[in-house]
Design a protein around this nucleic acid. Structure first.
Lengths: 228, 228
DNA sequence: ACCAAAAGCTGATAAATATCATATTTTTAA
DNA sequence: TTAAAAATATGATATTTATCAGCTTTTGGT
């Protein structure tokens, strides 16, 4: 079992605010898990009762809408924490998390880490800062969803993916989403997403090879996303 | 100048977690303001540098989208706090707040209340709980915006208004929004909102008298909003 | 009370998007 | 390896929504 004190991943999230002693305690109660592509980390309606610290891999966090379509609301990657909200309220999750590729995660039980929320103000403040930032971001997403066309949202999403993820050895964005996943991020029908991707490719803004996406013209995509 | 210790409004927000001493200090540095209908509390790009505690009235919090249309992301009413995020990060506001009717608010400067965030864990945790709850709510709004039709969103919005606000003496929802405001909540053109409101009225789900909205058939509206 | 401005309303039309159908390609599993 | 299943792609069409135009009603200021 690896040790949190020596784990570099915590530097990327709120766990960096924990003291050495706290990390040692967390280390001894956490469990490491390997989650294969397509497997579920947690489901809607489930009590998560802890946080996941993502050591490797990517997962999509989504919510089923009333009309039966999944909407992806977050993509979580290496270094991110997942499930902080379960520490704060006792409600079941309203979201579902599924691995997009093979993942390595550590699960820290709620009862162990909640103490730190109560006792370590630095940790609390860091969680708070992250939440404030997520909230600001969520407001922006709401505005985009409400006001932008599907084409604008696709352009914005491609830029977001391009920023958030590394490039693979071919130079493509290093997350391989299905066309359906992409449609479920921007909130449209899979066919519409496919059509617009083809259009962007034809115009030379992107290139597509299977699930690989290459961003060719950032500026033009930005123009499209802002309605220029 | 009224005293926070004796103000009932704080019971409805995180200020209830402050101690008597803290409240006395806040009392002495806060400023009371009257804001008339249509006046601006703060603008996009402004440093708020404090929180507003709403003693009376309603305001709309919105963000201008790239294509030049305002999207209302929150409605704030008596008892609510506004601007908590300014306490946590030092960024300028990404939102604008305008009074929907005459308001009574107290403004508490950031430097005075930030101490309490640092020293009073109960206060911090209450802010944190609210943020977690707002975040959950924001996820739900994103899903609705992305997946629901305009008609579904209008039905959902009417139910939300009906829940959130009291009834006036006639039995109408006690917030008088323009058709444009309603359109800017659901993220559609004003004409579309008007057309659908007329349709709902024709079907007997609601009644309209000027800016008064009467909810007549809650169940039917719920069915519409969930795509039943 | 009156006038100008704003808000509300309705119809016609255009544009965006979803849905359905079907073909092709890729992936998966036996 | 091969057959079945899933994913991708594209066309045709239907539905939803935005836009534009013109009109009526309401509101606010003097």
């Amino acid at each position: 079992m690896s040790k949190c004190e020596q784990c570099i991943v915590r530097q990327f999230n709120s766990l960096k605010a924990l003291t050495k002693d706290e990390l040692v305690r967390i280390s001894s109660c956490k469990t490491s898990k390997t989650i294969k592509k397509g497997e579920i980390l947690f489901e809607e309606g489930e009590h998560i009762n802890g946080v996941f610290c993502v050591k490797d891999g990517i997962c999509k966090v989504s919510k089923m809408s009333d009309n039966g379509r999944d909407q992806i609301v977050h993509l979580i990657k290496k270094g991110d924490l997942l499930g902080e909200r379960s520490l704060i309220n006792d409600e079941v999750s309203n979201l579902k998390a599924i691995a997009v590729n093979d993942m390595e995660v550590c699960f820290i039980p709620k009862e162990e880490i909640v103490r730190d929320l109560e006792k370590n103000p630095k940790f609390t403040m860091d969680i708070l800062k992250n939440m404030a930032s997520s909230l600001k971001n969520a407001d922006n997403v709401i505005v985009d969803m409400a006001q932008k066309t599907v084409k604008q949202r696709l352009a914005a999403t491609l830029l977001y993916l391009n920023n958030k993820f590394e490039k693979d050895t071919d130079g493509a964005i290093d997350v391989h989403l299905s066309r359906e996943d992409i449609a479920n991020i921007i909130g449209t029908a899979t066919e519409s997403a496919i059509r617009l991707l083809s259009e962007f490719k034809k115009k030379g803004l992107i290139n597509l090879k299977g699930k690989q996406v290459f961003i060719l013209d950032t500026q033009k995509l930005k123009d499209i996303s802002t309605g220029f």
